[in-house]
Design a protein around this nucleic acid. Structure first.
Lengths: 215, 215
DNA sequence: TTCCTTATGCCCCATAAGGGGTATCCCCAG
DNA sequence: CTGGGGATACCCCTTATGGGGCATAAGGAA
């Protein structure tokens, strides 16, 4: 891993589907003299194609992206250019598994949108200096899970990737019908996934599932 | 407002209904040489009666108290002794309205339990020194709401006290039946409150309502 | 006073959600 | 090669939810 301590500018790329955040981030990094914005992308597809040509030091990436999620995007990009550092930047706090997935995929930082702008800038600098910035609550999730000896169920993943996708949509208030459309499956299959989720988490409804999952 | 920068000890009172937290706080402040614990109370009634006689500089108070909530307790105590500084200390982050209510009632600090012990001690000192310590996310809520020009609805309180109670229970995954039992009303009335909430927040289901409320 | 909001209660009705079963298909581990 | 988990799909059923109306009582504001 290269460390660019002496570089005059931190070259940064942004992958964010939310236009409001994207605009804010774009302004913020364009206006800061310590950064050079190499580009912004609204989806994983274009990000994977175009980012390698721009050689950023750091890529700030949301994991909630349409079609291909940010974690897969990181995985792809790491294969192409392993020198890029990825800072996951997400709006909602999800299960500890998502955090692990992100780090396994090659992310080296994981912060929450709610932490605010100063925190974000500090994190980007810290990441570029070789650190692993993460939000307090994320760090806590990790420490907590390390504290659990042998993982109660023996299982690494309580929920499957598909189940997490379903739960993410449910957590946004989507109905089964919408979940089905988003994932390109039938409503019955979406319901089936939800039933499995409830069994695994030992809950009876969406709200409890989301609460337990996020805890 | 008096500022006690030169006092040798910060006299502190605690109002907390959770016995576990109360024990922890009691130990913490008893053992710190910078503080003098003037007393602890488990409910608003006894706190309102007894706190004025103990002349604390700072009162650390949970807003989730049985019977009379912490905000009303602060309002009452301020009338009796306006020199007392109140630091709201709560477990769960609720809507921005609750935060405003606390400040309007006379609180001058608002922190979350999850911030931890060091943060709490620092906040008490900062409060005593004339500051307004608050958790980062609380500060953000306030800044965000100030950013919204003229408050879209013109209304100060979007949701009524009762509606917030209902929404709190819904956010815990309770069914209408359980909400009704908890609040001592019929299920139909609980449903009615929920309908009002949905109208006000312009949403169609529990999850969206909770998301919008918390944002 | 009158009007409005809040909180309460009850009715009807359509749809969403939750719980159970069964069955393919694919892929990976034993 | 065989079994199991994961993902897909369809069936049945009951209950919970969301949306509408109507009504009353209390309390505050115009």
């Amino acid at each position: 891993m290269m460390i660019y301590l002496n570089d005059p500018l931190i070259r940064i790329g942004i992958v964010e589907s939310d236009p409001v955040y994207l605009q804010a981030l774009e302004s913020m990094f364009s206006l800061s003299p310590e950064f050079e914005l190499t580009g912004v992308w609204k989806d994983s597809g274009s990000a994977i194609r175009e980012i390698p040509g721009t050689s950023p030091h750091v890529v700030l990436i949301d994991i909630h992206l349409p079609a291909v999620n940010g974690i897969d995007c990181i995985r792809q990009l790491r294969k192409i250019d392993p020198d890029i550092q990825f800072l996951v930047f997400t709006g909602c706090e999800q299960g500890v598994e998502s955090v692990f997935d992100a780090f396994k995929a090659g992310a080296t930082g994981y912060i929450l949108k709610k932490d605010g702008a100063e925190s974000l800038l500090r994190s980007v600098k810290e990441l570029h200096a070789g650190g692993s910035p993460m939000s307090r609550s994320i760090a806590r999730k990790i420490v907590d899970s390390l504290g659990r000896p042998a993982t109660p169920g023996g299982k690494d993943h309580l929920l499957t990737k598909r189940e997490e996708e379903v739960l993410t949509l449910l957590s946004e208030g989507k109905m089964y019908k919408e979940v089905a459309i988003r994932l390109g499956i039938t409503m019955e299959t979406a319901k089936k996934h939800v039933k499995h989720i409830y069994n695994k988490l030992e809950v009876q409804n969406k709200m409890e599932a989301v609460n337990k999952w996020r805890s």
